[in-house]
């Protein structure tokens, strides 16, 4: 089934290439594999180096985002007062696309050294934070009533209910939150790199290839790299979920 999908995609690609300036799949594949470990002349870096730079930024920012979103999500779900303060803020900020924060980030972080880097990390932070928070919050708040009732019937103390009922149920939210957050973060960093000056990174690579011109195959190869990494991240995290939650 998956193979059929891939064949269809490649077929459609050839079709579109025939009538537009889109380079053919084999040209892109060739460029992709060459640039994977050989430096592209304009920027002097390989695709792997660009990907590593982007990934490093995403991991830094996401880790920061998760280390705040997860505890905050759980605590707000359990504390009504805090939830009443936090949820309206989150609901108001969440619909703002991460990219809309770029100009503001520049202004806010202007006094810091490495404004661009800090801003990019902030953009990814915003992208990763909200989906993670919402996922954790929703799961922590919606612990099945039947299980809580069961725990009460057995006169379980609050601490035990938290440890053995609420938190394990939240874990699903935490893990999907991490997976979705990383996905959005990955999309945000590529876009943030395209707008800001980065020196390296896949988004920057694509932008420079476009500016210098005549490098559509390089552009598509860069896009393919983004896709490959996004896919790998998702698959790895799904695998990790199964490992962390064997009961599912």
């Amino acid at each position: 089934m998956r193979l059929k999908g891939a064949i269809l995609l490649i077929f459609l690609w050839y079709l579109v290439s025939a009538i537009t300036e889109l380079p053919h799949p084999h040209e892109v594949a060739e460029t992709f594999f060459i640039l994977l470990f050989n430096s592209e002349p304009v920027l002097g870096k390989t695709l792997v180096q660009h990907a590593a730079a982007s990934l490093l930024r995403v991991l830094t920012a996401s880790l920061l985002a998760f280390s705040i979103a997860i505890p905050l999500g759980i605590v707000s779900a359990l504390n009504r007062t805090l939830a009443e303060v936090v949820t309206p803020m989150v609901e108001a900020l969440r619909p703002i696309p991460p990219l809309a924060w770029i100009p503001l980030a520049y202004v806010i972080f202007a006094p810091l050294p490495n404004t661009v880097q800090v801003s990019q990390i902030f953009i990814v932070f915003v992208g990763a934070f909200f989906p993670c928070f919402v996922s954790v919050f929703d799961y922590s708040r919606n612990v099945p009533e039947e299980l809580l009732e069961m725990a009460r019937v057995f006169k379980a103390p609050e601490r035990l209910i938290l440890r053995d009922v609420v938190l394990p149920h939240s874990l699903q939210g935490v893990l999907s939150g991490i997976r979705i957050g990383l996905g959005v973060g990955w999309m945000s960093i590529i876009a943030a790199e395209m707008i800001a000056t980065s020196g390296e990174g896949l988004g920057y690579f694509i932008l420079v290839m476009y500016e210098v011109g005549g490098r559509t195959a390089e552009i598509v190869a860069g896009m393919a790299m983004i896709g490959v990494i996004g896919y790998l991240m998702n698959t790895l995290l799904l695998k990790a979920e199964r490992l962390v939650m064997p009961w599912r």
Binding site: L56, L59, T60, A61, L63, L64, F66, S67, I121
Partner: peptide
């Protein structure tokens, strides 16, 4: 997590 993030940022 925070330490790791700072380390990464340092890199």
């Amino acid at each position: 997590a925070v330490t790791l993030a700072i380390l990464l940022a340092g890199c």
